[in-house]
Amino acid sequence: MVDDWRPRATQETLRARAVLLAAIRAFFAERGLLEVETPQLSTAATSDPVLASLATRWPGPDGPPRFLHTSPELPMKRLLAAGSGDIWQLARVFRDGERGRLHHPEFTLLEWYRVGWDQRRLMAEVAELVTTLLDGHALQPLETLSYREAFVAHAGLDPFTAGPDAWRAAAARHAIEGVGFDALDLDGWRDLLLTHAVEPELGQGRLTFVHDYPASQAALARVRDGDPPLAERFELYWQGIELANGFHELLDATEQRRRIDADLEHRRALGLPEVPVDVRFLAALEAGMPACAGVALGVDRLLMLKLGLDSVDEVLAFPVERA
């Protein structure tokens, strides 16, 4: 007897989901951004070592691999390079190996790009959208912290200058005991303290932006020269939970190629599978993409928090185990 055929989300939650999606559409329609759809199946996989693409084959079981996108970023940038202007998309994206209270292997990403904008201006628009969508929630004024300020305030150390002993001491101060910490590199230590000590303090009673990330965590953001050089990247937090990630986008095709090669090298060192690179994205950057800023926001998490629920499963009709 199959007894888990019923939806996980309540009827009330499904209605709230529809209302949220309609409000998102209205927000972008009013501002004149173009809604686009890009492929879920790609010839290329993500090269990011901390993400894993799900794969299938096309055509048929003997065809070459096709990868489910982990984000619509690269094809959207090809549209930008082709002159699309401001664009937005609600995309179902897929990530292997991620499952938990806040993680589901397929989820809804809201992603948009603003031509000619920088991270500051886009952060303001993200705040406007989220405040609109959270209509009814009393929020204190926005908080904006640099990555360094967030660590100094909540982990008690400078994430750019701390050495191994300082990271260990900070973990001990926060009663973080673990297995495998000897294998952590600098960014691993940063992520350990970020997830265990810093994030829980962010976005309490208000929206918190964190910006100016270490250059080693730039992903596809441009890096501003300085000491240390800083990635023009930001994240949005509410109630201790990461909701959005944005970049002042990298335009330099040579630098982009170098970062992808570094990712591939890192993947090999970790014993991760070889993946095909999106050569059409690189060609688009070489052809020239207009200066822009872009951001991706997790719609399921936002809805979960808006409704006061505890897991993203509760806002999904059918979580993967009963899909």
Binding site: E98, H103, D187, R190, L192
Partner: peptide, 25 residues
């Protein structure tokens, strides 16, 4: 609990009961 920054290292945060002492770790 699965913990992972979108662009970062994943961790498992685990609560365990020591079956000899009953203590929770």
């Amino acid at each position: 609990e699965f913990v992972k920054p979108g662009k970062g290292q994943a961790f498992s945060r685990v609560r365990l009961r020591n079956l000899k002492t009953g203590r929770v770790w």
